[in-house]
Structures are given as structure tokens and as C-alpha cells.
Computed example of a mutant assay.
Amino acid sequence: MSQPPNHKAPLPPSSDQVITHLPDEWPRMGNRFTRWLGRLGLRTMGWRMTGELPKVRQLVIAGGPHTSNWDFVVAMFAILALGVKVSWLGKHTIFRWPLTGLWYKLGGIPVNRGAATGMVEQAVDSFRHNANQIVALMPEGTRSKVDQWKTGFLRIAKGAQVPVLLVGMDYPSKSIHFADMFTPGEDMMADLERVKTFIQSFRGKRPALQ
């Protein structure tokens, strides 16, 4: 695997390619108008997407750094621009009429934290029932500065036997960079440190919270 990019240095030429479309294997959502809206939003804010999207049907995205509510805005424009359906985990209590259908359509995966099977097991099970699925999580788990990052995304990927794609959001260069993809191994802490090193090589909107 290549070394994580450093926000103080230019990305390698092979990694600096602008992403404009999805691989056929990725799940889709939206239409021509929503894709145009997403591209307009990114262009207005000065952002671009770089790197390479792997040709796989299932994966977990680990992205960051997460230091501001603006991260969500930029990410949503990127999702709309690509026309990709990105799944997320939500409390089962919000999946109620009349919003149930909307949450599912937007990629929601209901999880019941009080169930006998935990959140990780429920997310793993969703991969078994969806041939094309991408679940995105932020290992930091919060916008605040934390010492201990979440390992749920690694446990989900390992349980579902799907790879993890690293995505960095860099505010100085205004780029969302899709980088290395790896398969979690037996040493979860080593994998977590690898992800942490990658994400912290990018600069968030509020670097003091990284």
C-alpha cells in the first residue's frame, strides 16, 4: 500500500485525478438533477474529489477528520454529485411512519441498541441482505477532540468480510481524497492506528480538534 498523503505536500500524480463518475459496481441514488445540484454545490464551495474509486460491490468507508458541521454539508454535496447511495446507521426508533420509506431510500440502516444482537452484528447482517452496499462511518465518532477512536467500523468490515476504503477531507486544498483500500486483519489496534495516521494527515476545518 502507498503511504498516506500529507496535506503539506502535493499528492502523487496518480492519486490527484479528479473523480467524475462511479464504478458500475457501486449502488446508485438520485437522478440527473440531484447530480447537477451536488456538482454545483461542490463547485460553488471550491471543493473537488480526487483519487480512485475501487470496483467492488461492498465496502466500509472510514472518513475524516471530523471537526465541523460543515463536513456533513461538503460530504452530502459529494454524495449527490456522484449519485452514490451511501448507507448509515440510525436508531431504529426513527424508522417509523411516515418517514420509514424515506430513511431507507436515503441509505438508512436501522439498529436497535437494546437488541440481543449488537449494532455491529446488525450492520454485518445488512451486508448479507444487500449485494451492493457502502456503509460510511467516521472513526472519531464526534467533532470534539478524542484520544480513543471507535473500532466499530473495523468490526463491521471484518464481520461482513468487506474491505475498508480510506477517505480524507482536506480543507486547505478543499479536496475529498479517496485513497487506500485494505482488508482488516487480526490486529485491530494496528489497523486503527493505520486509519488514524491517514486521517490525521489531512487538515480539518478546525485543526485544533484533531
Rank of each mutant, 00 (worst) to 15 (best):
G101H: 10
L166E: 02
I199P: 08
I199G: 01
V84P: 02
F153H: 09
V73Y: 07
K8H: 14
V73C: 10
T34M: 14
R206E: 15
T44W: 15
G159D: 03
L99H: 10
E121N: 11
A9M: 14
P207V: 13
A157G: 04
A131C: 12
G152K: 04
S68N: 14
F33W: 15
R39G: 09
P65V: 04
G90R: 01
T117F: 05
S144V: 13
F153C: 05
A179M: 00
K91D: 07
G159Y: 07
R194W: 09
P163R: 07
S173G: 02
P4G: 05
G63F: 08
L82D: 00
S126L: 02
I19Y: 05
A116R: 15
P23C: 09
A190G: 06
I94P: 03
F153Q: 05
A62G: 01
D71W: 07
L80K: 02
M188H: 03
R128V: 11
E52M: 11
L40R: 14
R96Y: 08
S126V: 06
I19T: 01
G63L: 12
G46K: 09
R28L: 09
R32N: 13
V84G: 01
L102Y: 06
V146S: 04
L11G: 09
M189I: 11
G185Q: 05
D71K: 06
V86I: 15
G152I: 07
I109R: 09
A160E: 08
G64A: 08
F202Y: 12
R57K: 14
G107F: 02
G64Q: 04
F95G: 03
A115S: 04
R194Y: 11
A9R: 15
S15W: 15
L99G: 03
A115C: 04
F72P: 00
R128A: 14
T93P: 00
L80T: 02
V120A: 02
E25M: 11
K85R: 12
F77M: 06
Q148A: 15
G63H: 12
I176M: 11
A115R: 07
L192P: 04
A115M: 00
G63M: 13
A190N: 10
T151R: 12
M29D: 10
P54D: 03
I176H: 07
P5C: 05
L166F: 04
Y171K: 04
G141W: 04
A78G: 06
R39L: 14
R128K: 15
G107E: 01
G168Y: 00
Q200M: 14
G101Q: 12
L209H: 09
I176W: 03
Q200C: 14
M119V: 14
R39E: 13
G108Y: 03
L42N: 07
N69D: 09
